[in-house]
Design a protein around this nucleic acid. Structure first.
Length: 178
DNA sequence: GAATGGATTGTCT
DNA sequence: GACAATCCATTCA
Protein backbone atom coordinates (compact mmCIF):
# COMPACT_ATOMS: atom_id res chain seq x y z
CA UNK A 1 0.00 0.00 0.00
CA UNK A 2 1.25 3.48 -0.75
CA UNK A 3 0.27 7.10 -0.49
CA UNK A 4 1.95 10.05 -2.11
CA UNK A 5 1.38 13.57 -0.82
CA UNK A 6 3.47 16.43 -2.12
CA UNK A 7 6.99 15.03 -2.33
CA UNK A 8 6.63 12.40 0.33
CA UNK A 9 5.81 8.83 -0.53
CA UNK A 10 4.89 6.42 2.22
CA UNK A 11 4.37 2.74 1.57
CA UNK A 12 4.24 -0.56 3.37
CA UNK A 13 3.11 -4.16 3.25
CA UNK A 14 -0.38 -4.82 4.56
CA UNK A 15 -0.09 -7.22 7.50
CA UNK A 16 -3.52 -6.98 9.15
CA UNK A 17 -7.04 -6.53 7.76
CA UNK A 18 -10.65 -7.07 8.75
CA UNK A 19 -13.63 -7.77 6.47
CA UNK A 20 -16.97 -6.03 6.86
CA UNK A 21 -19.49 -7.69 4.63
CA UNK A 22 -23.05 -6.68 3.85
CA UNK A 23 -26.01 -5.16 5.64
CA UNK A 24 -26.46 -8.44 7.55
CA UNK A 25 -23.11 -7.87 9.27
CA UNK A 26 -24.03 -5.84 12.38
CA UNK A 27 -20.52 -4.39 12.62
CA UNK A 28 -20.47 -3.23 9.00
CA UNK A 29 -21.20 0.43 8.39
CA UNK A 30 -23.76 -0.69 5.82
CA UNK A 31 -25.84 -2.40 8.54
CA UNK A 32 -28.36 0.49 8.81
CA UNK A 33 -28.76 0.59 5.04
CA UNK A 34 -27.50 3.28 2.66
CA UNK A 35 -26.61 6.61 4.28
CA UNK A 36 -24.55 9.59 3.12
CA UNK A 37 -21.58 8.38 5.16
CA UNK A 38 -21.44 4.79 3.95
CA UNK A 39 -22.25 5.65 0.34
CA UNK A 40 -18.79 4.51 -0.88
CA UNK A 41 -19.57 0.98 0.33
CA UNK A 42 -22.40 0.79 -2.19
CA UNK A 43 -20.25 1.99 -5.06
CA UNK A 44 -17.90 0.09 -7.35
CA UNK A 45 -14.99 -1.93 -5.90
CA UNK A 46 -11.44 -0.65 -5.79
CA UNK A 47 -12.47 2.62 -4.15
CA UNK A 48 -11.33 3.85 -0.75
CA UNK A 49 -13.75 4.42 2.13
CA UNK A 50 -12.20 6.71 4.72
CA UNK A 51 -14.14 7.91 7.75
CA UNK A 52 -13.44 9.62 11.03
CA UNK A 53 -13.98 7.50 14.09
CA UNK A 54 -14.03 8.58 17.73
CA UNK A 55 -13.62 12.09 16.41
CA UNK A 56 -9.89 11.66 15.96
CA UNK A 57 -8.89 8.63 13.90
CA UNK A 58 -9.19 8.28 10.15
CA UNK A 59 -9.74 4.65 9.23
CA UNK A 60 -9.08 3.29 5.75
CA UNK A 61 -11.21 0.68 3.99
CA UNK A 62 -11.00 -0.79 0.51
CA UNK A 63 -14.38 -1.44 -1.11
CA UNK A 64 -14.36 -4.98 -2.46
CA UNK A 65 -17.74 -5.91 -3.93
CA UNK A 66 -19.64 -4.80 -7.05
CA UNK A 67 -21.99 -1.85 -6.96
CA UNK A 68 -24.98 -2.51 -4.70
CA UNK A 69 -23.18 -5.10 -2.55
CA UNK A 70 -21.77 -3.15 0.39
CA UNK A 71 -18.55 -4.74 1.62
CA UNK A 72 -15.08 -3.53 2.45
CA UNK A 73 -11.77 -4.52 3.97
CA UNK A 74 -10.50 -2.41 6.84
CA UNK A 75 -6.73 -1.94 6.60
CA UNK A 76 -5.60 -2.23 10.23
CA UNK A 77 -1.80 -2.32 9.98
CA UNK A 78 1.07 -2.17 7.53
CA UNK A 79 4.76 -2.97 7.85
CA UNK A 80 6.51 0.28 6.84
CA UNK A 81 8.74 -0.01 3.77
CA UNK A 82 9.09 3.51 2.34
CA UNK A 83 8.82 6.98 3.82
CA UNK A 84 9.77 5.90 7.34
CA UNK A 85 10.97 9.42 8.12
CA UNK A 86 7.64 10.91 7.04
CA UNK A 87 5.74 8.46 9.19
CA UNK A 88 7.92 9.22 12.21
CA UNK A 89 7.33 12.95 11.74
CA UNK A 90 3.56 12.50 11.51
CA UNK A 91 3.46 10.16 14.50
CA UNK A 92 6.02 12.01 16.53
CA UNK A 93 3.92 14.94 17.65
CA UNK A 94 2.23 13.33 20.62
CA UNK A 95 3.84 10.15 21.87
CA UNK A 96 7.17 8.77 20.82
CA UNK A 97 7.06 5.66 18.66
CA UNK A 98 9.36 3.04 20.18
CA UNK A 99 10.09 1.10 16.99
CA UNK A 100 9.41 1.28 13.27
CA UNK A 101 7.05 -1.68 13.36
CA UNK A 102 4.66 0.42 15.46
CA UNK A 103 4.53 3.36 13.04
CA UNK A 104 1.36 2.10 11.32
CA UNK A 105 0.21 -0.56 13.77
CA UNK A 106 -3.52 -0.24 14.37
CA UNK A 107 -6.04 1.45 12.08
CA UNK A 108 -5.84 4.82 13.82
CA UNK A 109 -2.07 4.88 13.81
CA UNK A 110 -2.03 3.85 10.16
CA UNK A 111 -4.31 6.73 9.27
CA UNK A 112 -2.01 9.18 11.00
CA UNK A 113 1.18 7.74 9.52
CA UNK A 114 -0.35 8.00 6.05
CA UNK A 115 -1.74 11.48 6.68
CA UNK A 116 -5.27 10.38 5.87
CA UNK A 117 -8.22 12.76 5.99
CA UNK A 118 -11.67 12.82 4.46
CA UNK A 119 -10.00 14.03 1.28
CA UNK A 120 -8.76 10.49 0.79
CA UNK A 121 -12.33 9.19 0.85
CA UNK A 122 -13.66 7.63 -2.34
CA UNK A 123 -10.35 7.62 -4.17
CA UNK A 124 -9.54 5.12 -6.90
CA UNK A 125 -7.12 2.68 -5.24
CA UNK A 126 -5.63 1.75 -8.61
CA UNK A 127 -5.27 5.08 -10.36
CA UNK A 128 -4.94 7.67 -7.59
CA UNK A 129 -1.97 8.46 -5.35
CA UNK A 130 -3.53 6.34 -2.64
CA UNK A 131 -3.26 2.78 -3.79
CA UNK A 132 -2.93 -0.90 -3.15
CA UNK A 133 -0.67 -3.00 -5.36
CA UNK A 134 0.53 -6.58 -5.49
CA UNK A 135 4.22 -6.43 -4.68
CA UNK A 136 4.61 -10.19 -4.64
CA UNK A 137 5.18 -10.19 -0.89
CA UNK A 138 2.12 -12.28 -0.05
CA UNK A 139 3.97 -15.44 0.85
CA UNK A 140 3.89 -15.04 4.62
CA UNK A 141 1.65 -17.37 6.66
CA UNK A 142 -1.54 -15.73 7.92
CA UNK A 143 -3.91 -16.37 10.81
CA UNK A 144 -7.66 -15.79 11.06
CA UNK A 145 -9.64 -14.81 14.13
CA UNK A 146 -12.46 -12.64 15.46
CA UNK A 147 -12.46 -8.93 14.68
CA UNK A 148 -11.40 -6.62 17.49
CA UNK A 149 -12.51 -3.22 18.70
CA UNK A 150 -16.18 -3.85 17.94
CA UNK A 151 -19.12 -4.69 20.19
CA UNK A 152 -21.32 -6.56 17.71
CA UNK A 153 -20.58 -9.20 15.13
CA UNK A 154 -17.59 -10.47 17.08
CA UNK A 155 -18.58 -14.03 16.18
CA UNK A 156 -17.37 -13.62 12.61
CA UNK A 157 -13.69 -14.64 12.26
CA UNK A 158 -13.02 -12.06 9.59
CA UNK A 159 -9.78 -10.63 10.91
CA UNK A 160 -6.69 -11.78 9.04
CA UNK A 161 -3.09 -11.02 9.90
CA UNK A 162 0.43 -12.13 9.11
CA UNK A 163 1.24 -14.65 11.80
CA UNK A 164 3.61 -13.30 14.40
CA UNK A 165 4.41 -10.09 12.54
CA UNK A 166 5.59 -7.27 14.86
CA UNK A 167 3.49 -4.65 13.02
CA UNK A 168 0.22 -6.44 13.80
CA UNK A 169 -1.98 -4.79 16.45
CA UNK A 170 -3.85 -6.46 19.28
CA UNK A 171 -2.76 -9.24 21.53
CA UNK A 172 -1.09 -12.26 19.95
CA UNK A 173 -2.38 -15.77 20.25
CA UNK A 174 -6.06 -15.25 19.38
CA UNK A 175 -5.99 -17.24 16.17
CA UNK A 176 -8.91 -19.50 15.32
CA UNK A 177 -7.29 -20.85 12.19
CA UNK A 178 -3.48 -20.63 12.19
C1' DG B 1 -32.07 21.72 17.26
C1' DA B 2 -30.06 18.63 20.96
C1' DA B 3 -28.38 14.21 22.46
C1' DT B 4 -25.82 9.99 21.64
C1' DG B 5 -22.14 6.86 20.78
C1' DG B 6 -18.45 4.71 17.94
C1' DA B 7 -14.24 -0.54 13.23
C1' DT B 8 -9.12 3.95 18.87
C1' DT B 9 -5.15 5.11 21.36
C1' DG B 10 -2.17 6.87 24.93
C1' DT B 11 -1.85 8.02 29.68
C1' DC B 12 -2.64 7.52 34.34
C1' DT B 13 -3.53 4.78 38.66
C1' DG C 1 -7.78 -1.70 34.24
C1' DA C 2 -10.11 2.76 33.70
C1' DC C 3 -10.62 6.95 31.25
C1' DA C 4 -10.06 11.15 28.52
C1' DA C 5 -9.60 13.23 23.98
C1' DT C 6 -12.70 14.78 20.29
C1' DC C 7 -16.02 15.02 15.87
C1' DC C 8 -19.57 13.70 12.99
C1' DA C 9 -23.45 10.83 11.42
C1' DT C 10 -27.42 9.38 13.14
C1' DT C 11 -31.50 9.48 16.09
C1' DC C 12 -35.02 11.66 18.63
C1' DA C 13 -37.98 15.59 20.07
Amino acid sequence: MHRASDQALVAGAIVEVEAYIGESDPACHAAPGPTPRNAPLYGPPGISYVYLNYGMHYLLNAVTEPEGSPAAVLIRAIAPLEGLETMRRRRGGRARVPDDAALARGPGNLGRAFGLTLRQNQLDLVASRLGIEDWGLSMAPVSWGPRIGIRVGVDRPWRCWVTGHPAVSGRPGTAVVP
